[in-house]
Design a protein around this nucleic acid. Structure first.
Lengths: 201, 201
DNA sequence: AAACCAAGGGTGGTCTGACCACCTTGAAAG
DNA sequence: CTTTCAAGGTGGTCAGACCACCCTTGGTTT
């Protein structure tokens, strides 16, 4: 293939680099279309199978989405596959459910604390309406609730990691907080009581 | 191919499932050898290219390691590739370094707290010797220090996530804690002062 | 003119067969 | 017994061939 490569670098890895560059160059965003496999093959001077190895890997990571007959598209990072696969490999069943729940809880606690400074009246109002929204089932409410908090944190990475945890936990049983919990947290925001958040979780 | 599949499941995804089963069935561990690509192709009734798509994806995830001329081997989960790739895709440069450092710090803080109950005299002794080990540079010491703490937590997932953060942060600059910091934390363990850990970070 | 439908071209999905490069092994040569 | 090297196994890569699917297009029908 054409791409310059350090000793023994595999083609599919070089292809990954090139695709990344391409995305950067053309400033592609979620939903945008990548060149076709055949097009990439020709431009990068690599066999289509090598292109596909790279694409499949990206797909598994959740970076792209392929639609049969249409093409390959950039997607917002949603590690569906990754989560499922890794959960079956890394987290070998049992033992680790509690690990997962605990880790997720930790992230949620920290988000609750980080978001504290951003929680003005409007924000509290927003959360309250979520808690009272009867069109959401408990799981959906929980997701929406913390999604909002994580957004307030202004820390994309933290949010991503939590979302990952959340998806993991969807796979198994989902033991949520009491309904009181959310109102209690909102109350702490209202009364500007930062100190008690730690203990709430 | 032979593998039973829900509607439209791609071959390489089915292959992933089969490989996972295979590993489980034969109780393969890190370092063990997987069947050859040609062997898998024949057994699973799938084209070699499909087999390779699955294997490449697993390789990128860090689940396996391939050695040219030798074979494919199970590896301990080390998301080298993943980290690098994801970092260039998800964390688009700038903006997020601080996110990373903060998130990592949060994990370390929680580990320090979780480990508290396990920190007997021996454990404190262990940490102290790490801090005083002059053969380690600051980065190595930091890694060893928190690696020990995370092990004490007995939460594999938390540790894995942290390691991932840690690898991310190696890629960029590594701004560690003061040298005092470690001694201070050890001191809190010695004096059984749980409350102050939160404030130390 | 508007609605409908079939054909064609583009795209991903998969398989096959062919080489090449690399490693291990074991038999032959010393 | 050691050294050498040829053969076979294994991953790495490519080219080409089909298939299935989607969308557009242009002609046909209404």
């Amino acid at each position: 293939m054409a791409v310059t490569m350090s000793p023994k670098q595999k083609v599919y890895q070089a292809v990954l680099q090139e695709i990344r560059k391409f995305i950067e160059m053309n400033d592609l965003k979620s939903g945008d279309k990548l060149p076709s496999e055949r097009g990439l093959s020709e431009n990068l001077k690599a066999g289509r199978s090598s292109i596909r190895e790279a694409l499949r890997a990206m797909e598994l990571l959740g970076l792209i989405e392929t639609r049969h007959g249409e093409g390959t598209f950039l997607s917002t990072y949603r590690p569906y596959q990754t989560v499922e696969l890794l959960s079956s490999f890394i987290l070998q069943e049992n033992t680790t459910r509690s690990d997962l729940m605990l880790t997720k809880r930790i992230m949620e606690k920290e988000a609750a604390k980080l978001a504290f400074s951003q929680m003005n009246e409007d924000a509290v109002e927003e959360l309250t309406s979520l808690v009272n929204d009867s069109s959401l089932n408990p799981d959906e409410m929980h997701d929406a609730f913390f999604n909002y908090l994580f957004n307030q944190c202004d820390n994309l990475l933290l949010k991503k990691v939590w979302q990952l945890m959340d998806e993991f936990s969807q796979t198994i049983n989902k033991q949520n907080y009491n309904t009181d919990f959310y109102e209690e947290l909102i109350n702490l925001y209202t009364t500007r009581n930062y100190q008690s958040i730690e203990a709430l979780f």
